[in-house]
């Protein structure tokens, strides 16, 4: 059949898996009814299969050259011996190696040599591992040793911080500290003890109460200030002096009560009352005292 009457590209596609779907089924239908096309396809099939076979032969040749490299490396027996020594080979394969050892002295010597190496490597690995374990132990000990001074320093810092904090809280928020800070001794020469008798008596009571306070006899001071406060409304003194004694006594009674355990009245309520009284000499101190009493540090310190 002249070449002009068939499409060689189409046959090539058909034979080399380049044709599928409708084109393939259409071409196969043509092959069924057209003897000439079928003959041509079979002829070309021979050619393509021949090319494939030839290509495979070339590949086989190429493999031979690769195999030459393996032969030169001469590692096949080594590999075999390694599989034998590592227990990869069992049953018939193992027996075959053992038979070969009996038959070939050189091979038996090779196996013996590799066995020595293999056992040596195994022992070395074990030794390495033992040393590794030992070095891990040393490292751990060194880490512990290196860590100890740091831990000690950290602990010391923590202790210092802790002590410092505790000291700060105690110095500023303990009842004793607050009482000492907020207590205001009577001004010298301002006891207003001179003058009418009742005024002098009030002055002496006020001074006696302060002395009790300064001695740390807070229950005594509390009673003394409280008594004075009860007397003051009826004492015949001027208003300025009365206010002075009242405000001083109220504040010192509050501080005396604060120093007592338990306080004889509600400290915060009294402090709030003084803080709310405009013109009270201790109004601002009462406000500050309230803030301290409501602070968590106060609860921590007491």
């Amino acid at each position: 059949m002249p070449a002009e009457f068939y499409d060689i590209a189409q046959i090539e596609r058909y034979l080399t898996r380049g044709m599928d779907g409708e084109e393939r089924s259409g071409f196969e239908a043509l092959l069924k009814k057209d003897d000439n096309t079928r003959r041509e396809v079979e002829a070309y099939r021979q050619l393509f299969e021949g090319f494939h076979a030839l290509r495979s032969e070339n590949f086989r040749q190429e493999m031979k050259s690769w195999e030459t490299e393996w032969e030169q490396a001469n590692t096949d027996d080594t590999e075999l011996i390694e599989w034998y020594l590592t227990g990869e080979l069992t049953g018939e394969a193992r027996t075959r190696i053992e038979n070969r050892m009996e038959e070939e002295e050189q091979f038996a010597r090779e196996v013996a040599a590799y066995r020595q190496l293999h056992e040596g490597f195994t022992a070395a690995r074990s030794e390495d591992f033992r040393q590794q374990v030992s070095s891990w132990e040393k490292e751990q000990a060194a880490v512990r040793r290196r860590l100890w001074p740091r831990l000690a320093a950290a602990a010391a810092i923590l202790l210092l911080v802790g002590f410092g904090f505790r000291w700060y809280v105690q110095a500023n928020f303990s009842t004793e500290a607050i009482v000492a800070t907020y207590y205001q001794p009577p001004l010298e020469g301002a006891t207003m003890g001179e003058g009418p008798l009742e005024q002098e008596a009030a002055g002496r009571s006020f001074a006696a109460a302060n002395r009790l306070f300064q001695k740390g006899d807070y229950p005594g001071a509390y009673l003394a200030f409280d008594a004075l406060l009860n007397q003051l409304p009826d004492v015949s003194i001027d208003n300025l002096t009365r206010s002075y004694y009242r405000e001083q006594s109220e504040w010192n009674r509050l501080l005396s009560a604060l120093a007592m355990d338990p306080p004889p009245f509600n400290i915060q309520e009294e402090a709030r009352r003084i803080a709310a009284e405009d013109g009270h000499e201790f109004q601002s101190q009462a406000k500050r005292l309230l803030r301290k009493l409501q602070s968590p540090f106060y609860r921590l310190a007491n």
């Binding site: 021979q46 050619l47 299969e49 021949g50 090319f51 494939h52 076979a53 030839l54 495979s56 032969e57």
Partner: peptide, 12 residues
Amino acid sequence: EQKAKAELVRRL
């Protein structure tokens, strides 16, 4: 079989 196929193409 492969050898025969290859030989054919080699000759051609």
